[in-house]
Design a protein around this nucleic acid. Sequence first.
DNA 1: GACAATTTAACGAACGATCGGTATAATGTC
DNA 2: GACATTATACCGATCGTTCGTTAAATTGTC
Lengths: 190, 190
Amino acid sequence: MALQTITQDALVESLFEIIRCHGYEGTTIALLSDITGLKKSSLYHRFPAGKDDMVKAVVQYVSAQLQQFIIAPLLEHQVPPEERFSTMLVTARGFYSAGNKNCLLNVLSLGEAKDDIKTLLQQDYTAWSAALSALAQESGLTPPEAAARAEHFLIAVQGALVVQRLTDNPLTFDNCMAYQQKQFFRQSDD
Amino acid sequence: MALQTITQDALVESLFEIIRCHGYEGTTIALLSDITGLKKSSLYHRFPAGKDDMVKAVVQYVSAQLQQFIIAPLLEHQVPPEERFSTMLVTARGFYSAGNKNCLLNVLSLGEAKDDIKTLLQQDYTAWSAALSALAQESGLTPPEAAARAEHFLIAVQGALVVQRLTDNPLTFDNCMAYQQKQFFRQSDD
DNA sequence: GACAATTTAACGAACGATCGGTATAATGTC
DNA sequence: GACATTATACCGATCGTTCGTTAAATTGTC
C-alpha cells in the first residue's frame, strides 16, 4: 500500500474543525481540499460517497469521542459523582476550546444535512443526557428531576456557546459552567 | 409609481422566515425567489446590493421588532417587574413559535455573514441583555448579579432553541422558560 | 383634461464563478 | 509490474449577479 500523506484519523479531525466552523453549506469541497492539503480526487478516494460521506465520518468520529471521553467517565461508579462531573467539565472545556469553538450538534442540526446525520446527532445528545441523568440519580435525585437537571445543563452548554460567539466575551462559557456545576448538585428545591 | 405586488414589510418578513430556517449559506436567491413569488431580478430591484442587502434588511427588521415588542415593554416602569418578565416570555414564545423556530442571532452568527451584520446581531443581544439587567436591578439585585441573571436567561433561551431542534421535544422551550422565570427572580443565594 | 416624458416594478435571459462530482492519467511504493 | 494514492482535466448544475426590456403608474406641460 502506498504511503498515506495523512492518516485517516488526522484527516477526519481536520474535516471536523472545518465543518464545526463553517457549517454544512459553508463547508465546500474546495475548502476541505485547501486546508487538508489533499486534492479533491484524493478526498473522493477516501470518501467515495462525497460530501455527505465526509460529514458522516466526522459525526461518527465525534460520537466516538463523546462516548469515550465524556459519557464513559460519567458512568465510572467508583469515582464520586461531583468528581466525575468536574472531569466532564474539563473535557468539555477542551472540546469547545473554552467556548471558542462551536458544537457540531448546533451547527449540523441547523444546516440541510441529511436525515440520517441528524439522527446520529440526536443520538449523541440523548446519550449525553442519559449519562448526566444517571449521575444525578446517583446523587439522590428522583428520575424526573435528574432528567430535568441533565437537560438544563446541556441547554446551558449550547446556549453559552451561542452567546459567547455572539458577544466575543471569552469568559461566558467558563462562567456559565462554573454556575451550572453548583446548580447540578444543589439541594432539591422545586 | 408602478404598483407593488408585495409590500416591502411583507417581503422582508418572508425573507426573515427563510433565513432563520436555512441560515446564511443555505439561503439561496433562487429559494428566496420561489417563496416570495418575486423573480430574482425583481429581488435585486428591491435590494440593489444583493444578498447581503437582503440579510441586512432582515436583521434591521428583527432589531426593530426586538426593540418594540421585547425591550420597550421590559422597561415600562409602571408595570411590576414580574409582570413585565411574563409579558416578555409570552412575546418571545410567539417569536420563536414555542421553540420551533430558530433565533436569527444563532443562525447568522454561525454563518459567513459580513462583519457589519454580525455587529448588528451583537448590538441586539447587548440591548436585550441590558434591559433584562435593568429589570433585575429594579427587583433588588446588585448590578453584577443582575447582569449575570440576564446572561443566564439569554443563554437558556438560545440553548433551549438548540436542544429543542436537536430532540424534537416540543416542550423543551416551554419547560425551560418556566424554570427560568422562577430563577430570574429568586432570592440571592450565591 | 390630454398627452408626452419620466419613474417604478417586475421580468426573462444570460453572465462568470463556483458548486459537488467524475473521469483518466501520472506518481510513488512494494 | 501491481496497486494504492495523488494529480490534471473536465462535467453539468447551481451559485450570486447583471443586463436589457416591458408594462404600469406618476409627473410635467399645455
